[in-house]
Simulated assay, not measured.
Amino acid sequence: MEPMINEMFQSMYETYQESLRIIAMHYKIPRDDIDDIVQETFISYYEHYPVNMSNRKSMLTTILIRKCLDYWRKYRPESISMDSEEGKIEVGNLLHLVSKDIADTVVDKEKYKRLYDCIMEMRDDWKEVILYCCLLDYTSSEAGKILGISGTACRSRLMKERLELKKRLGPDYKDY
């Protein structure tokens, strides 16, 4: 059992380590320290979570962000007055670090790709309803007129599509 877990962990490392390095660079971690932080992220994940967890990329990203913030807390311990010019710059940097960042964007793109793949596997007439109702923001009646079906049929297809997506995406469906 242990060799299989090690292989899974090695595969996970190879899959996600480059993305985590990019996120660490975004947090302005010095290049010499990026590998250490990425390694610590994987070690922390390995110690606390199962290797086959479904949302492992999200969890790795969260751990990495916390490690990056800890890094800056550790190496910037001096206090700075918020009224000083340097203090204003530091507050701006902190706001930049806690706002929507590249890590969230990576996770969002991963979710979008998974949702897109599920939609592309559906029947063509269902894809059209999703296009008009969800992406182009038409009402069911308007989309039905364009597609040559009734508004009721359009709503029915949309409901079936949502159920199908819920089945395919499983417990992660609510995140989409």
Rank of each mutant, 00 (worst) to 15 (best):
E2L: 15
E2I: 15
P3L: 09
N6A: 11
Q17D: 05
Q17C: 09
S19K: 14
R21N: 09
I22M: 14
H26M: 09
H26D: 15
H26N: 13
Y27R: 06
Y27I: 10
Y27E: 10
D32V: 11
Q39W: 14
S44K: 03
S44N: 11
Y45V: 09
Y45S: 08
Y45K: 07
Y45L: 07
V51W: 10
M53F: 07
S54I: 04
N55T: 02
S58L: 14
S58V: 05
T61F: 10
T62F: 06
T62Q: 07
I63K: 08
I63V: 11
I63P: 05
I65L: 12
K67F: 04
C68N: 09
L69F: 12
W72Y: 12
W72Q: 10
K74L: 14
R76Y: 13
R76H: 13
R76N: 15
R76V: 09
S79D: 05
I80Y: 06
S81V: 01
M82H: 07
S84W: 03
K88G: 12
E90G: 07
E90N: 12
V91M: 14
G92W: 11
G92L: 14
N93G: 09
L94K: 13
L95M: 15
L95F: 14
H96E: 13
H96P: 05
D101V: 04
D101P: 08
A103N: 11
D104W: 08
T105W: 10
V106Q: 09
V106T: 11
V107T: 14
V107W: 06
E110Y: 00
E110P: 00
Y112W: 06
K113R: 13
R114A: 08
R114F: 02
L115R: 13
L115G: 10
Y116R: 03
E121K: 04
E121Y: 07
E121D: 11
W126I: 01
W126H: 05
K127N: 05
K127G: 02
E128P: 06
L131T: 08
C134G: 01
C134E: 03
L135G: 01
D137V: 10
Y138S: 01
T139F: 08
T139Q: 05
S140T: 12
E142W: 03
E142L: 03
E142Y: 08
A143S: 15
A143V: 03
I146P: 02
I146M: 08
G148P: 06
I149Y: 00
G151K: 00
A153E: 05
R155A: 11
R162F: 03
R162E: 00
E164Y: 07
K167Q: 08
K167P: 04
G170Q: 05
D172F: 11
Y173Q: 02
D175H: 12
